[in-house]
Design a binder for these strands. Structure first.
Length: 486
RNA sequence: GCCUCCAUUGUCUAGAGGCCUAGGACGCCGCCCUCUCAAGGCGGAAACAUGGGUUCGAAUCCCAUUGGGGGUGCCA
């Protein structure tokens, strides 16, 4: 039988990383098995409607390379794929359950329910719907229906017995019906189905064979199975996924500003790195491999590698993956991606981006850190002369001035201002003068950058700065040192 | 409260009774390379939550405790 998986997000306006991972596993499994990956939008909560939210879902999935075979935009044999557009389809199914005794009309108002909820809470109990409306006679029901009294349709859950189902990652799950079941609402007062109901109906109608979703549904699954059984439908395979956590106690949340796919992309993380890392939080291939392309993930993915314990999303490790992916970029690609970030700090300068990109590529972990790393090329920071002191390089406050004026003399004579010529002029000159490279180049680099660490050494920086600016900064350094030594 | 899931270094994890004096990766520390910082190379510190069983033998199986997650909505 063909495997059919689905990703069924509700359009909130953002793609949570946990959602991205759920989508990924569904996608991976479908592709691995040569099956179909279906996208379904679950927008049954009209109050939460967000304009343009479905586009966020489409764009994210596409950017990640997770192409769906059936969905709202591409269509398919089981459409429509947006639940609000399927609205009229659910009521007949609910009525079928009423006829078979598995569901019933409920006319209790939200206010009444809330009051009973509060009362139960005051007694230290947890409220569970008491089947109040199940006791209504047929005539009473009909009268209210005729009077257009608002109603919901509830599931008539069993109060005794137990339910067992098999989960592909957690194994056999058994619950007492008294614990796991309640008369949950199937059809809301506004005529919309609840998630619980639409989910079951749609998964069946769409021929979903494997339901892969967050483990928050682990304990409500018996209720869904009750529905499948009531309809006489085949129960799908369940694959419950652990939660992606921020730390031991908290899951990734919007509050921290690091829960959404877009948060990471705007910070300069590469989609490929994010996907690669995300796949590994909660799943492992069974060996020590860590780097995977999407195709390699498809190849390696297996449900048996899914974990039962929650994983903490480690930004540190993600950053490592990102840095590695950046290093593997073709130089032109790196330049293309880095240029906008260079612009942020260097707009208005004539810095050679191509050369800068070469120097920066191995030093870039996240693009958002790039501007601060290159800003010194535009504006020399107001640095402390202590930076000139470096024992290992034999540079001191006393030796630096002479080194700098030496550099000035040599650099003034450099015929062509390109890196090779600068290098081939300076280095031999240092040797001829009987000086040590470090003792000259260390103070030079400090004078040119005002920084303890820089992308590239003194010669590279001199080249990027241009002759004029280089000589100007040397002069500035000399002044600073004269002042400090006075 | 009740139900339920989970538990190997700071983090992600390997481990499915003897292969474990517990392996890999990130991070951290040190060394090398070097005009700085990265990158790269080499090395180091760092874990089986606790207590009971079962067994010749337990990180691996069972139970309890502790800790954490999730559920308990006309949200999904």
């Amino acid at each position: 039988m063909e495997v059919r998986t689905r990703f069924a997000p509700s359009p909130t306006g953002f793609m949570h990383l946990g959602g991205v991972r759920t989508a990924l596993y569904n996608f991976l499994y479908a592709r691995k098995m040569g099956g179909k990956f279906i996208l379904r939008i679950e927008d049954t909560d009209q109050e939460r409607f967000v304009e343009g939210a479905t586009d966020v879902i489409y764009d994210t999935l596409k950017a990640c390379g997770m192409n769906w075979d059936e969905g709202p935009d591409v269509g398919g044999p089981c459409g429509p794929y947006i639940q609000s557009e399927r609205k009229d389809l659910y009521l007949p199914y609910a009525k079928q359950l009423i006829r078979s005794g598995h569901a019933y009309y409920c006319f209790c108002t939200k206010e009444e329910l809330e009051a009973r909820h509060e009362a139960a809470k005051a007694r230290g109990e947890v409220f569970k719907y008491d089947k109040h409306c199940l006791r209504l006679t047929q005539a009473e029901i009909q009268r209210r229906l005729d009077e257009k009294v608002p109603y919901v349709i509830r599931m008539n859950a069993p109060e005794t017995g137990e339910s067992t189902y098999h989960d592909l990652v957690f194994g056999d799950m058994t619950f007492q019906n008294s614990d796991a079941m309640d008369d949950m609402v199937l059809i809301k007062a506004d005529g919309m189905p609840t998630y619980n109901f639409a989910n079951v109906v749609d998964d069946h109608l769409m021929g979903i064979t494997h339901v892969m979703r967050g483990m928050e549904y682990l304990s409500s699954t018996p209720k869904y199975n009750f529905l499948y059984n009531a309809f006489g439908w085949e129960i799908p395979q369940y694959v419950h996924l652990t939660t992606v956590m921020r730390d031991e106690k908290h899951k990734l949340s919007k509050r921290d500003g690091d829960a959404y796919y877009s948060d990471f992309i705007s910070k300069g993380y590469l989609t490929e790195a994010l996907i690669n890392y995300l796949a590994l939080v909660g799943w492992n291939p069974g060996d020590n491999r860590e780097f995977f392309t999407l195709d390699e993930l498809i190849e390696a993915f297996d449900i048996s590698g899914l974990h039962t314990s929650p994983g903490i999303f480690d930004v540190n490790k993600l950053t490592y993956f990102n840095a590695e992916y950046i290093r593997r970029l073709a130089p032109e690609k790196y330049l293309e991606l880095a240029a906008p970030w260079f612009d942020q700090a260097l707009a208005g300068t004539r810095v050679d981006y191509r050369r800068l990109a070469e120097l920066m590529q191995a030093r870039t972990e996240i693009f958002s850190r790039v501007p601060d790393m290159v800003r010194f090329l535009k504006d020399l920071p107001d640095y402390d002369t202590e930076l000139y002191v470096n024992k290992k390089q034999k540079s001191s406050l006393e030796s630096a001035p002479e080194a700098l004026s030496f550099c000035r003399d040599v650099l003034e004579r450099v015929p062509d201002w390109n890196e090779t010529v600068i290098h081939d002029t300076l280095i031999p000159a240092i040797a001829e003068a009987g000086k040590k490279n470090g003792a000259v180049l260390w103070p030079l680099r400090i004078a040119l950058s005002g920084l303890l660490s820089t992308p590239g050494g003194a010669i590279e920086i001199a080249y990027l700065l241009g002759r004029e600016e280089t000589l100007r900064r040397i002069g500035l350094g000399l002044d600073k040192l004269a002042h400090a030594n006075a």
